[in-house]
Amino acid sequence: MSGSWRTATTALALIVACAVHVALGGSLHFAGCRPNLAVASLLVVCLFAGPCGAAGWGLLVGTFEAAYAADLAGSYMVSRTLIASVVGSLEARVFRDSALVAIGVGLLGTLAVESVFAVFAPPSDGLAWLRRIAGTACANGALAPILYYSLRPLASRRPDL
Protein backbone atom coordinates (compact mmCIF):
# COMPACT_ATOMS: atom_id res chain seq x y z
CA MET A 1 0.00 0.00 0.00
CA SER A 2 1.44 3.43 -0.92
CA GLY A 3 2.09 6.07 1.74
CA SER A 4 -0.63 8.47 0.60
CA TRP A 5 -3.20 5.68 0.29
CA ARG A 6 -2.29 4.47 3.80
CA THR A 7 -2.65 8.02 5.16
CA ALA A 8 -6.06 8.44 3.51
CA THR A 9 -7.45 5.13 4.78
CA THR A 10 -6.08 5.76 8.27
CA ALA A 11 -7.68 9.24 8.32
CA LEU A 12 -10.98 7.74 7.17
CA ALA A 13 -10.82 5.04 9.83
CA LEU A 14 -10.14 7.64 12.54
CA ILE A 15 -13.01 9.86 11.32
CA VAL A 16 -15.40 6.88 11.36
CA ALA A 17 -14.20 5.94 14.88
CA CYS A 18 -14.80 9.53 16.05
CA ALA A 19 -18.24 9.59 14.40
CA VAL A 20 -19.20 6.28 16.04
CA HIS A 21 -18.02 7.60 19.40
CA VAL A 22 -20.02 10.82 19.02
CA ALA A 23 -23.11 9.02 17.75
CA LEU A 24 -23.17 5.95 19.98
CA GLY A 25 -20.56 6.55 22.69
CA GLY A 26 -23.22 7.54 25.21
CA SER A 27 -24.81 4.10 25.08
CA LEU A 28 -21.62 2.00 24.89
CA HIS A 29 -20.27 0.63 28.16
CA PHE A 30 -18.61 -2.51 29.48
CA ALA A 31 -19.43 -3.31 33.12
CA GLY A 32 -20.15 0.36 33.78
CA CYS A 33 -16.95 1.58 32.07
CA ARG A 34 -17.47 3.90 29.10
CA PRO A 35 -14.79 3.54 26.42
CA ASN A 36 -13.62 6.51 24.36
CA LEU A 37 -13.46 4.94 20.92
CA ALA A 38 -11.93 8.07 19.37
CA VAL A 39 -9.02 8.20 21.82
CA ALA A 40 -8.50 4.42 21.78
CA SER A 41 -8.32 4.41 17.97
CA LEU A 42 -5.99 7.41 17.98
CA LEU A 43 -3.58 5.76 20.42
CA VAL A 44 -3.50 2.53 18.42
CA VAL A 45 -2.93 4.40 15.14
CA CYS A 46 -0.08 6.34 16.78
CA LEU A 47 1.72 3.03 17.26
CA PHE A 48 2.22 2.90 13.50
CA ALA A 49 3.01 6.58 12.91
CA GLY A 50 6.11 8.62 13.57
CA PRO A 51 6.01 11.65 15.87
CA CYS A 52 4.76 14.05 13.15
CA GLY A 53 2.18 11.65 11.82
CA ALA A 54 0.94 10.95 15.34
CA ALA A 55 0.70 14.66 16.16
CA GLY A 56 -1.29 15.14 12.95
CA TRP A 57 -3.68 12.32 13.88
CA GLY A 58 -3.99 13.80 17.37
CA LEU A 59 -4.91 17.18 15.92
CA LEU A 60 -7.48 15.54 13.60
CA VAL A 61 -9.17 13.61 16.43
CA GLY A 62 -8.97 16.59 18.79
CA THR A 63 -10.59 18.88 16.23
CA PHE A 64 -13.36 16.34 15.57
CA GLU A 65 -14.05 15.96 19.30
CA ALA A 66 -13.91 19.75 19.80
CA ALA A 67 -16.56 20.20 17.11
CA TYR A 68 -19.04 18.15 19.14
CA ALA A 69 -18.17 19.25 22.68
CA ALA A 70 -19.72 22.55 23.72
CA ASP A 71 -17.47 23.49 26.59
CA LEU A 72 -13.67 23.81 26.80
CA ALA A 73 -13.57 22.23 23.38
CA GLY A 74 -10.11 23.61 22.54
CA SER A 75 -8.65 21.52 25.36
CA TYR A 76 -9.51 18.40 23.34
CA MET A 77 -7.23 19.60 20.53
CA VAL A 78 -4.38 20.38 22.93
CA SER A 79 -4.54 17.15 24.96
CA ARG A 80 -4.95 14.83 21.95
CA THR A 81 -2.17 16.50 19.94
CA LEU A 82 0.29 16.47 22.85
CA ILE A 83 -0.23 12.86 23.92
CA ALA A 84 -0.38 11.55 20.33
CA SER A 85 2.95 13.22 19.58
CA VAL A 86 4.45 11.66 22.73
CA VAL A 87 3.20 8.18 21.74
CA GLY A 88 4.50 8.78 18.21
CA SER A 89 7.87 9.95 19.55
CA LEU A 90 8.44 6.54 21.14
CA GLU A 91 8.68 5.05 17.66
CA ALA A 92 12.42 5.53 17.30
CA ARG A 93 13.13 3.95 20.69
CA VAL A 94 10.61 1.21 21.39
CA PHE A 95 9.38 -1.65 19.28
CA ARG A 96 5.62 -1.22 19.42
CA ASP A 97 4.10 -3.53 16.84
CA SER A 98 2.49 -5.81 19.38
CA ALA A 99 -1.03 -6.26 20.73
CA LEU A 100 0.31 -6.23 24.29
CA VAL A 101 1.93 -2.84 23.74
CA ALA A 102 -1.38 -1.64 22.25
CA ILE A 103 -3.18 -2.64 25.47
CA GLY A 104 -0.64 -0.75 27.56
CA VAL A 105 -0.79 2.32 25.34
CA GLY A 106 -4.62 2.20 25.35
CA LEU A 107 -4.66 2.12 29.14
CA LEU A 108 -1.88 4.54 30.01
CA GLY A 109 -2.42 6.79 26.98
CA THR A 110 -6.07 7.34 27.96
CA LEU A 111 -5.03 8.26 31.49
CA ALA A 112 -2.45 10.69 30.06
CA VAL A 113 -4.91 12.25 27.59
CA GLU A 114 -7.58 12.79 30.25
CA SER A 115 -5.01 14.09 32.75
CA VAL A 116 -3.74 16.69 30.27
CA PHE A 117 -7.36 17.60 29.53
CA ALA A 118 -8.01 18.01 33.27
CA VAL A 119 -5.09 20.46 33.50
CA PHE A 120 -6.97 22.77 31.12
CA ALA A 121 -10.44 21.93 32.52
CA PRO A 122 -10.13 20.96 36.19
CA PRO A 123 -12.98 18.64 37.27
CA SER A 124 -15.30 19.85 40.03
CA ASP A 125 -15.45 16.45 41.75
CA GLY A 126 -11.96 14.92 41.70
CA LEU A 127 -12.89 11.51 43.05
CA ALA A 128 -15.79 10.99 40.63
CA TRP A 129 -13.55 12.17 37.79
CA LEU A 130 -10.83 9.71 38.81
CA ARG A 131 -13.36 6.85 38.89
CA ARG A 132 -14.70 7.73 35.44
CA ILE A 133 -11.25 8.11 33.93
CA ALA A 134 -10.09 4.80 35.40
CA GLY A 135 -13.17 3.13 33.89
CA THR A 136 -12.57 4.72 30.49
CA ALA A 137 -8.88 3.72 30.58
CA CYS A 138 -9.77 0.09 31.41
CA ALA A 139 -12.41 -0.01 28.65
CA ASN A 140 -9.95 1.52 26.16
CA GLY A 141 -7.31 -1.01 27.21
CA ALA A 142 -9.80 -3.81 26.57
CA LEU A 143 -10.72 -2.35 23.18
CA ALA A 144 -7.09 -1.80 22.15
CA PRO A 145 -6.31 -5.34 20.85
CA ILE A 146 -9.48 -5.36 18.72
CA LEU A 147 -8.58 -1.95 17.32
CA TYR A 148 -4.96 -3.04 16.90
CA TYR A 149 -5.89 -5.96 14.64
CA SER A 150 -8.51 -3.85 12.79
CA LEU A 151 -6.35 -0.79 12.17
CA ARG A 152 -2.97 -2.45 11.68
CA PRO A 153 -3.63 -3.48 8.04
CA LEU A 154 -4.56 0.15 7.25
CA ALA A 155 -2.00 2.07 9.28
CA SER A 156 1.10 -0.09 9.45
CA ARG A 157 3.92 0.24 6.94
CA ARG A 158 4.54 -3.48 7.31
CA PRO A 159 1.09 -5.05 7.81
CA ASP A 160 2.41 -8.51 6.92
CA LEU A 161 4.93 -8.51 9.78
Binding site: G3, F48, A49, G50, P51, C52, G53, A55, G56, G58, L59, G62, T63, A66, L72, A73, G74, S75, Y76, M77, V78, S79, R80, T81, L82, S85, G88, S89, E91, A92, R93, V94, F95, R96, F120, R157, R158
Partner: peptide
Amino acid sequence: RSNPKPLIGNRAALVGLVLVGVCLGVFHN
Protein backbone atom coordinates in the same frame (compact mmCIF):
# COMPACT_ATOMS: atom_id res chain seq x y z
CA ARG B 1 12.51 -0.92 17.41
CA SER B 2 13.75 -2.65 14.25
CA ASN B 3 12.98 0.23 11.85
CA PRO B 4 13.78 3.55 13.50
CA LYS B 5 13.05 5.75 10.44
CA PRO B 6 9.81 7.75 11.05
CA LEU B 7 6.96 7.77 8.53
CA ILE B 8 6.95 11.51 7.83
CA GLY B 9 8.66 14.68 8.74
CA ASN B 10 11.36 15.80 11.12
CA ARG B 11 11.67 17.45 14.50
CA ALA B 12 10.74 20.92 13.19
CA ALA B 13 7.54 19.55 11.63
CA LEU B 14 6.67 17.80 14.91
CA VAL B 15 7.17 20.97 16.95
CA GLY B 16 5.16 22.91 14.34
CA LEU B 17 2.26 20.45 14.47
CA VAL B 18 2.17 20.38 18.27
CA LEU B 19 2.28 24.18 18.36
CA VAL B 20 -0.56 24.38 15.84
CA GLY B 21 -2.63 21.99 18.01
CA VAL B 22 -1.94 23.92 21.20
CA CYS B 23 -2.55 27.35 19.61
CA LEU B 24 -5.75 26.19 17.90
CA GLY B 25 -7.01 24.76 21.18
CA VAL B 26 -6.24 27.90 23.17
CA PHE B 27 -7.72 30.14 20.44
CA HIS B 28 -10.83 27.98 20.36
CA ASN B 29 -11.34 28.11 24.15
